[in-house]
Design a binder for these strands. Structure first.
Length: 913
RNA sequence: GCCGAGAUGGCGGAAUUGGUAGACGCACGGGACUCAAAAUCCCGCGGUAGUAAUACUGUGAGGGUUCGAUUCCCUCUCUCGGCACCA
């Protein structure tokens, strides 16, 4: 009988649906596992093979967990609001609701073909009013908690999409969606105060089982810096329009210890003090600069290499030494970070240095960096000799060690470092003419190499080449030279030119200066975050309306909870004009003034779709609840998510927002956990066989439906698992798909050879099946599905070589394979006379004693090289193993030559001769 | 520039408390079956030398530690991903 995947799949899809096989039992007493995929955006393009990879992985995991006896919640839904559907509507004038529902239909049928075990009774979609009612409710909750606020702010505006974008949605100064260059526009916008949670969003990561790179990306995104906020008093002379005698300019710095090196201040063009501090004679020049800066887009502002700036004519006093410092304006200062102003220390900051050099501003070094602890010598010099030489030094040496090649680490006390330099100059370089010593001095970016009286500044590989060329002139071949670049941070240095603080270490100075500033009231310790509040307003149609009403004085009030949802109207024009399409809906603005006195209009912006997708995992716990966001009991019972699977492209945005919401709801007492996803894994990207991204225009897209048609869903599933490690990006291979199909065919064919009458299992068969149980179980737990698939192949190779295996082994084999190939295994399960679904079977366990009682192969090594092999029984004694090992190599080695011997139990005997 | 991940046959990949490198699959070569092809089955398959047994060599490059290194340490090169004037 041929393996006809099409009829098998059709049969079981219907059968499982009729049985309600994957329905989640809310009242089960079993322990729960919540296993979730990132829900997809239902695009018109249909399901992508990348979706299939992640969904198959969680499906295998879910099926495995069910068979292990857990109550598995494994739902699916749709991230249905969003720009593509709306853009399509603009083009075709077909309502997004229609295209979205069409796409969902397509996705659903595609997913069902794959045999994914979702419980469809819990399906949700963010564009349904039953769902977005609660998105709006969540907005109101944040509003009540003071976490949602409206503010006029410069927003990233995409001229093509005609809407503002969150910072996160601007990539390289361009719109993430359409690639248009983003401009800045001053608009009145709604924000969520995610910055209030910055610290907790960092700390909460500790207890999560997430890829470390993802955690790190979140930490970097939040960007916590510890430093100080310092006030610089504005110098009174000059024709400034100061409001009071005591006007200050506030700056944030992570290096208050370098303040004696501060030679100017720089303000962002948008800084509020700019207009006050500029002198009459500089006015024209400054205004011209401000105009230029305003005209620049974010893109040119960040990619421009040359720093530009203008002097305001104004001065401030350095609070530590009362020095008068000029105030400049430059657009390299970001107005939205900290105070939008910085103290420039050109001697110790690369950007400040560039600026100071360009405009001839003074550069005062205030940190002396540690002497480099490395010494470079000629290669032919024996290590022992160098150590000996160093030990003759007249001052204390903490430690001398050979670190690599001919580079030696020499640790000396900080205060002895000048002495060490002199020693190198005077002594070592005299005695070793061909070597050199190098160290780095005050500028952290420069390395100086001293070679007798010649002094090389080394900033780049080119400089290094020059140095090598110089050495070559002295007749030393290049491969004899060992020179390495190493930059020493001036954070390890000691202060100089800093009055009473000179001589202190950076760390000490930092603390002492902060205390002084605090005592004197002109500064304090400050923690600054790179993370900014989340801008959620979108001037688009296809999203959840923001539940806010305005009265005729322009005041706003929240919509009453009882009046939710604020429904998305249908009498609209999609054309984006820069203001929300909802503006033009008549129906939308009909408001019951008995409830909302003086109400004239509604908020016309919709919410960023990330708002919808940042709480859906909670709704799955209680998806059909019409009276509540979700019942507290159910959310606590089924949440948090035990395993979350999705693409790495969501490492910051989605995951950060979801964690933020979870913490807010936790604080509100609505849920008893404050992290949504305990374990997170990413599936890698699947690229085309030519190693480029799959795209319609290139015509290299692999359609999952086609693979299902030609080779079957089981083949597609197993192929995607076999491609390689789950989290890696992998190229599609048409040929390799055949290999999996061939394997399933062999499994199918082998089912004919099962002997139901034989009950005595051979020793090797017993060992093989137990090894298989062990490795497949471990691989699923670790989500190493590629090696699990190879184990299945190995076993069928073994079985075919044996010619037949008995029924109990076969049953075990099918059970192990069931999560991977649900259709084929169900069919073969029925074929051996089973009346109930294989997917309701319990997982099998292995017997370790059977595995460990196998014959072991011992490798004999002589001086680390493999020389012989022999087999032993596991109980063979050590002496006996040594004896057998020597026996196997005795024609090559004399017993008297053996100096040492090692035995790694059951693995290796190693002789040293 | 900074941070992170990685580099293993013709290809995808396997092997890490340091212990037979190349599992498993694909591709390829040879053979069987066939009038023939497909499918299937058997054999081979890192490189060099050799009829062969075998020997040497080999996990991006160089060095180190070790009886023994794909695995640990140092340096370098390249590739991919993230951030990017964040004071």
């Amino acid at each position: 009988m041929p393996y006809d995947h099409a009829s098998i799949e059709q049969k079981w899809i219907k059968n499982w649906k009729d049985l309600g096989l994957y329905k989640f039992d809310e009242n089960s007493s079993k322990e729960k596992k919540y296993i979730l995929d990132m829900f997809p955006y239902p695009s018109g393009a249909g399901l992508h093979v990348g979706h299939v990879e992640g969904y198959t992985a969680t499906d295998i995991y879910s099926r495995y967990m069910r068979m292990k006896g857990f109550n598995v919640l494994h739902p699916m839904g749709w991230d249905a609001f969003g720009l593509p559907a709306e853009n399509y509507a603009v083009k075709t004038n077909i309502h997004p609701d229609i295209t979205t529902n069409e796409a969902i239909k397509t996705f659903t049928s595609q997913i069902n073909r794959l045999g994914l075990s979702y419980d469809w009774s819990r399906e949700l979609a963010t564009h349904k009013k039953e769902y977005y009612k609660w998105t709006q409710w969540l907005f109101l909750l944040l509003y009540k908690k003071g976490l949602a606020y409206k503010k006029e702010a410069l927003a990233n505006f995409c001229p093509s999409c005609q809407t503002v974008l969150a910072n996160e949605q601007v990539v390289d100064g361009k719109c993430e969606r359409c690639g248009a260059i983003v401009s800045q526009k001053l608009m009145n916008q709604w924000f969520f105060k995610i910055t209030d949670y910055a610290d907790r969003l960092i700390n909460g990561l500790d207890k999560l089982d997430w890829p470390s790179s993802t955690k790190l990306a979140q930490v970097n995104w939040i960007g916590k810096s510890t430093g100080a906020e310092l006030n610089f008093k504005v110098a009174k002379e000059g024709a400034f329009s100061l409001d009071s005698e005591d006007e200050y300019i506030k700056v944030f710095t992570t290096r208050p210890d370098t303040i004696y090196g501060c030679t100017f201040l720089v303000l962002a063009p948008e800084h509020k003090m700019v207009s006050k501090i500029v002198t009459d004679e500089k006015k024209v020049e400054v205004e011209k600069y401000l105009l230029e800066a305003k005209g620049k887009t974010e893109l040119t502002r960040t990619t421009e290499k040359d720093k530009t700036g203008v002097f305001t004519g104004g001065f401030v006093y350095n609070p530590f030494n009362e020095e008068k410092i000029p105030v400049w304006i430059s657009d390299f200062v970001i107005s939205t970070y900290a105070e939008g102003a910085l103290m420039a220390v050109p001697a110790h900051d690369e950007r400040d240095h560039e600026f100071a050099t360009k405009y001839s501003l003074p550069i005062i070094p205030v940190i002396k960096a540690r002497v480099a602890k490395y010494l470079v010598v000629e290669k032919s010099l024996k290590p022992e000799k160098v150590i000996e030489m160093l030990k003759t030094w007249t001052f204390e040496i903490k430690e001398v060690s050979k670190s690599w090649g001919n580079i030696f680490t020499v640790n000396v006390p900080v205060e002895k470092e000048p002495e060490m330099i002199n020693f190198l100059k005077d002594n070592l370089l005299e005695t070793s003419d061909d070597g050199g010593a190098w160290y780095c001095d005050s500028m952290g970016t420069t390395n100086n190499i001293l070679v007798k009286d010649k002094h090389f500044k080394i900033n780049s590989n080119k400089d290094l080449e020059d140095f090598k060329a110089y050495e070559r002139t002295k007749g030393i071949p290049e491969d004899q030279l060992d020179v390495k670049l190493k930059v020493f941070s001036d954070k390890d240095g000691i202060l100089m030119n800093s009055d009473m603080y000179s001589g202190l270490s950076v760390q000490d100075a930092f603390e002492k200066m902060l205390k002084f500033a605090d005592d004197e009231g002109f500064g304090e310790k400050k923690v600054q975050f790179r993370l900014r509040d989340w801008l959620i307003s979108r001037q688009r149609y296809w999203g959840a309306p923001i539940p806010i009403i305005y009265d005729n004085d322009g005041n706003f009030m929240p919509v009453n909870e009882a009046d939710l949802p604020v429904e998305l109207p249908t009498d609209i024009d999609f054309k984006p004009t820069g203001i929300s399409p909802l503006t033009y809906s008549k129906k939308f603005h009909e408001i019951d003034t008995s409830k909302y006195p003086n109400a004239v209009s509604r908020e016309m912006d919709t919410m960023d779709t990330f708002v919808d997708s940042s709480w859906y995992f909670l709704r799955f716990c209680d998806p059909n609840n019409s009276s509540e966001f979700g019942s507290k009991e159910k959310m606590n019972k089924f949440g948090p998510v035990d395993l979350y699977m999705g693409g790495a492209e969501h490492t910051v945005l989605h995951l950060l927002y979801a964690r933020f919401f979870t913490k807010v709801l936790f604080d509100e007492g609505l849920i008893n956990f404050d992290e949504p996803f305990l374990k997170l894994r990413h599936q890698g990207m699947i690229i085309a066989s030519d190693h480029t991204k799959m795209s319609k225009s290139k015509g290299n897209v692999i359609n999952p439906d086609e693979i299902c048609n030609t080779s079957g869903a089981d083949t597609l599933r197993m192929y995607e698992m076999f491609m390689g490690p789950l989290d890696q990006s992998k190229a599609w291979s048409v040929d390799s798909v055949k290999g999996i199909r061939r394997f399933l065919q062999r499994v199918f064919d082998f089912s004919e050879k099962i002997d139901s009458n034989t009950t005595d299992v051979s020793v090797s068969e017993n060992a093989e099946i137990n090894i298989l149980i062990k490795s497949v179980t471990e691989d699923i737990e670790a989500m190493k599905f590629n090696t699990a698939v190879s184990s299945f192949m190995k076993f069928i190779n073994f079985a075919e070589a044996e010619g037949k295996i008995c029924m109990s082994t076969w049953e075990n084999y099918l059970i192990l394979l069931a999560p991977f190939a649900p259709f084929l295994t169900e069919e073969l399960w029925e074929k051996i006379g089973k009346k109930t679904s294989i997917h309701n079977e319990l997982w099998t366990t292995h017997d370790e004693s059977i595995i460990s009682s196998r014959i072991q192969t011992i490798v004999v090594q002589v001086n680390g090289k493999k020389r012989a092999l022999f087999d032993i029984k596991p109980e063979t004694s050590e002496e006996e193993v040594y004896r057998l090992a020597f026996e196997s190599i005795k024609d090559k080695v004399k017993e008297s030559d053996v100096k040492k011997k090692f035995y790694v139990k059951g693995k290796i005997v190693s002789f040293v001769i």
